[in-house]
Write a protein that binds this DNA or RNA. Structure first.
Lengths: 202, 202
DNA sequence: ATCGACTGTCAGTACTGACTGACATTTAAG
DNA sequence: CTTAAATGTCAGTCAGTACTGACAGTCGAT
């Protein structure tokens, strides 16, 4: 039977998922091939038969489970050019994507060295978000709906704010209980709307 | 001669600084005691004579070079209860403190496991900032200078935004050139001022 | 000159962890 | 049942690494 054609989780995927899970919490060097195999319910030997080396296991995991890049189009279709609505959509989409890939992000934060081009691909999304949001702000300003500002910097601020909150949640969300992400999104979007929209709420 | 009484950098400190430097970039397990000693211009043996173990080297480094906790007082004296001025001060102070300790922060991000209570102490400052800022927002609201909002969440948003920007700068600031921290501070503070102040700029 | 604190050198120990080879066992397909 | 592919077992290699002991050199102070 050829790799990947199994209906249930295939042997290879079990190993990849276990690797992602453990590396995310303990780091590449902090986890052993034995641990990974055990977590996958397989023998260490099988791990090496499939991937040849620990390094290759990490690379394969990254290639296989890194989020795809279908986001740009999604946006241009869903934006309605009303600041509050759109910022809420963007914020929520951002957190959704980041959360779906939080383990890979954790790994790439800890293991920036182990792979060339690793980090680059991981921050590709944040970068895309900023670009999209920058163009959005510029267009909104052109339409007279926003005051004149440095669009790129505003986009950068907005995304960074969401990034900061995401990381807090990630690396021990227990540090700030009674602060939920959804609540944060609503408050922060409110502030940005009042701070950027022309003649709102005064 | 007793440890620490030297005018120039003492042997112990050389080792501690080298350790911080290397662990920040390569992680605790990614660096060897040999490397650390070599970077400090000393022999491995000396390292062990001073610290006994690699683990103790990390702990000592953390205790010795972790930023102190003299911040709260500083604030209460410097705040002038004018939103823009104060937010600028807070933002700049935050980045100054974080930058002064960026290597320790890097380590604590990568090595959350290796020490109990490690992470807790590292995020103590962000937490303090949020508490201070929360009280500040509440007081400002009471004075009628701010609109009614969820003070804690606003503080959380503001600090998270600065945290996100700081981390970007840290882990490869080359990703977003033409975006300086100072510019960011001015733009973002502007937005928050317009978003929170009562009857401003309309 | 000598003493003492500090550091260097070097050989070596003990352990860990990635990785392999030989052989047995399972499992599904024909 | 037979076969082949996948997996398990187990013993073992090899390199790296934290850490030690014995001995020698340096250097400043008295």
């Amino acid at each position: 039977m050829i790799e990947g054609s199994n209906a249930a989780t295939s042997t290879g995927d079990k190993l990849l998922l276990a690797a992602i899970d453990l590396m995310a919490s303990k780091g590449y060097k902090g986890v052993t091939t034995q641990e990974i195999a055990a977590a996958a319910g397989l023998s260490e030997k099988t791990l090496f038969r499939h991937f040849g080396s620990k390094q290759n296991l990490l690379e394969t995991a990254f290639d296989r489970f890194h989020y795809a890049e279908e986001m740009t189009r999604l946006f241009n279709e869903k934006l309605v050019w009303e600041l509050e609505t759109d910022l809420l959509l963007i914020s929520r989409t951002y957190h959704e994507i980041m959360n779906r890939n939080r383990k890979m992000i954790m790994i790439s934060v800890k293991e920036a060295d182990h792979l060339p081009g690793f980090r680059e691909r991981t921050i590709k999304h944040p970068k895309q978000f900023i670009e999209i949001l920058t163009r959005y702000f510029m267009e909104m300003t052109a339409q007279g709906k926003l005051i004149e500002t440095n669009a790129q910097m505003q986009a950068y601020s907005f995304i960074s704010m969401n990034y900061g909150v995401f990381l807090n949640d990630l690396a021990g969300g227990e540090h700030f209980p009674n602060l939920t992400v959804e609540e944060f999104i609503m408050e922060s979007v409110g502030t940005f709307v009042r701070g950027l929209a022309r003649q709102a709420y005064c």
